[in-house]
Nucleic acid binder design. Structure first.
Lengths: 204, 204, 204, 204
DNA sequence: AATGAATGAGCATTCATTCAT
DNA sequence: TATGAATGAATGCTCATTCAT
């Protein structure tokens, strides 16, 4: 009858972390069961809160998925910007970005599944998240590529937007394959191979 | 009370088309509403058959999605194989495959949406369809690439599997972006740009 | 493609037996799966006819169940009447009827299941089949009992209708228990025990 | 759009009653429409709760039927045990049990219908509920009968199990007939007639 | 008479969301 | 803030029955 354990240790982080806990729990749950098969009650249980509590922090189940994307995308872009601000060579910039891309996904399989699979399952999401951080990320790649064209290291006749998409597509496929693959390998080193081919392909 | 009209008009198309009609209707419905939001009743209405009729041809809603994938993938692989059997240059082979890839998707937006979006929405599907035709397609790319390495047109130090994935990823991204994009452009020509960069990047 | 076997032996009985074949098949199917879980298609398959054919002989699934009851009940009552018409002792008459009752059910487990279980599953059936042959059977028992009272072998103060129900209930329970029982024993001999107790209980 | 009234009135009965209310409502609904024709929505409406609420207390529609049986059977057996614990004469014990049997059923026609009709409609139920409380009830009758044989009031050569079934069958038939009957009479007094015949029949 | 493809009404169950406490 | 009992809309699938052949 009594609910003994349920250790109040959950206060391991100062208060207010509840939102973050729910987000982390949701990432885990979505990754394991898929967005549509995940119940809000599953997330609540995983986050060790009551069902209703989830709605104190998020308007709906969908908003949780969005928040996972938004938060991580914002972090990634911030990290990426910081990472390259002191670099000069556009090729090196792209290399660092690519490595960071796969490094982040490779460090958290659940997050990777949500990004590579769950977020793709509907045109609605696709369009929305495309309009959001994803476009920004693609723009970062494009601007860096244009910079390379300006300084003469990349072929000037290439459409920068398309070039950015090619690079993104290649990296994205690495991530997706890594998730699906039964084998156990590091994702981040794949960035080197991709960049080798890509830079070779676009260099002036 | 009475069940007036609705007399078995059908036969608009010769018999046996029913399965194909349902498949076509489902592609349209899935593309417009997403797999999870599509009701079997929607598909039935779009195919102009009764709800129950759907189940005479498919075991479940999920099987319909699978059938769309299977059928089109099989056709595509057959067409691809035929297309390149008389070619010698591995580079040309890859060019043709890439063009066919984007041509087919570009010719049927609904089908493209199902392939690029709906089929990606769950690890379950991903793994299953990965195991099926998709793996076969990737293998086709890989073997052609290896052939190119053998005849000396592609860099021998590159991992053929990874190279195949890079190419697929780039093409895949073209397709996905084409779907999401509000602009109206032809998909198939994008193959040329992708192949330009890719071949440049992998050539010996 | 060809449907070779399906031996036309089915004409083992002259034509017109189709109705009987469906009835027999239905008894088997109802007994094994229960009335509500039995599909008309199951019955058709068991009877080796097409689904639609069933409806050439019966108006509905429910009518099949009724027909099983009606037919067997009519046979049983006819057999019972014949069996006792040359007997004098009312006690012997009841003994014969009881034996026949359990003998018939004990000879066809499927039929017994339909009579003891499937026919009981709804007040609607109960009332209908009560109004039909069942009432007639109970009346046979009652009249025979009254005859016994008249000739002085049964206690006159007993209500004959109730006495008939007691006897029927006891026999009915023997049949039901026999069906449910995992053990393997003959049903018909149980009639002797029941008659021993009953006759002892009602004798003047 | 708005979801106006229907405010959580409830609390009409103290909380915790909800399970009991659903059970009572289900008994009524099953009795009136039959188990298979009863919709869970009917039960919910009758119990004045939402459809989903039913599933907070019961795993399935089937479990509701089981629960009706289990609960009432447990109560009846407890009541029966208590009723006879201070009696010595096995004949009197059986008389009391028989009276209680018909008294309980006679006091709640809906419950009687469920017990006499709905619970009988499938071998699955039959076997299950046979394995459960029903067997226990039959065992109670048998043990009491054996006790009577030991103390010499019942004929020793009779099989106690069969004797118990005969008694049960007779009582059961009284109950079933009472339900089906259009006439309006008390069920419980029938126990006396049955016991008169039965005891007369088995007495040493 | 016989067939079996087609029909479409019907229903148990789930689960995101709310709100009284 | 937090809870979790209660809600009720939503839907995939089944199957008795029909009817064109």
């Amino acid at each position: 009858m009594a609910r003994p354990s349920k250790k109040r240790v959950s206060s391991r982080n100062s208060i207010g972390d509840k939102r973050a806990m729910i987000l982390r729990a949701a990432t885990r749950v979505f990754a394991r069961n898929g967005y549509f098969n995940s119940k809000v009650a599953d997330i609540a249980r995983a986050a060790e809160v009551a069902d209703g509590t989830v709605y104190l922090y998020f308007k709906s189940k969908e908003e949780i998925l969005h928040s996972i994307f938004d938060q991580n995308m914002a972090e990634a872009i911030a990290a990426g910007g910081q990472l390259i601000e002191n670099l000069d060579d556009p090729r090196e910039k792209l290399r660092r970005i690519a490595k960071l891309h796969l490094e982040r996904l490779g460090a958290d399989r659940d997050l990777a599944v949500v990004f590579q699979v769950e977020l793709r399952g509907s045109t609605k999401f696709m369009e929305e998240f495309s309009a959001a951080g994803f476009a920004e990320y693609l723009a970062l790649l494009r601007r860096t590529f244009e910079e390379g064209q300006r300084v003469g290291v990349f072929r000037k006749e290439l459409n920068a937007t398309v070039a950015a998409k090619i690079l993104f597509g290649a990296l994205d496929e690495m991530a997706t394959n890594w998730i699906i693959s039964k084998r156990n390998y590091k994702l981040e080193p794949m960035a080197d191979v991709v960049m080798d081919v890509f830079l070779n392909g676009v260099s002036a």
